[in-house]
Amino acid sequence: MPSDHANGKAPRISVEGVAKSFTTGRGTLDVLADISFSVAEGETVAIVGPSGCGKSTLMSIIAGFERPDRGSVAIDGTPLRKPSSKGILISQQGSVFPWLTVRENLMFGLNGHRFEGKQDLADHYAAMVGLKGFERSYPHELSGGMLKRAELARALVVKPEILYMDEPFSALDALLSLKMRNELLRILAEERHTVLLITHDVEEAIHVADRVLVLSTRPTRIQATFDVPIPHPRRLASAAVQDLRAAILRELGVEA
């Protein structure tokens, strides 16, 4: 996997000295202090950190929904001003529109693009995530796992260069979450996206990522970086995965 940019090409995502604080009734709360890293094209990078460390704020900034107080984010070398369909955010709560059918949701991002066969494209991605036969269902008729699949498909339809995944499977039970991870890996093998994954689940990070960044808390900085030189498919029970897991957990201050 390409993890350096020796070829002179700008990295897909470049985060430079991003800092953010919030003003509350009791004073100023520093959430992010000087975060810098980059993600190369086609790379999958996971960010792990304790809860409340500002992971979601960081993701919000990188996806263009919030502005940093200091520092900057660039996508393919271009400074980020607002969210764009170059990178689609998939979050823990999910954002599949409950008033649209699965097919209408999948076609939502294609609005404003004029080409034949929008519906075929939507149905192709519905089938890819295993929702064939549910194109006309409403979200409230689907299970939690199927909703996640729909959300993933809606993102994939617009062929984004980047997938921003903020605790994407955390609301699912352990079994379903593992299943969705395998599904994601299968899709990533087919369509090479750049992925930035935020998770509190160290095992999930090692399972999918090429590189794992560990955040410290208050103020939040990148405390350590771990490469994951384990070829896919990764066996979670293998010594390589378990040793790395223990090392990352130790970095987070937990003995396992």
Binding site: A63, F65, K82, P83, S84, S85, I88, L89, S91, Q93, G94, S95, F97, F108, G109, N111, G112, V158
Partner: peptide, 13 residues
């Protein structure tokens, strides 16, 4: 907000 964000993300008119 999650729905408005999703709409903004897809850059619709």
């Amino acid at each position: 907000q999650r729905y408005l964000r999703a709409a903004a993300n897809f850059g619709v008119s």
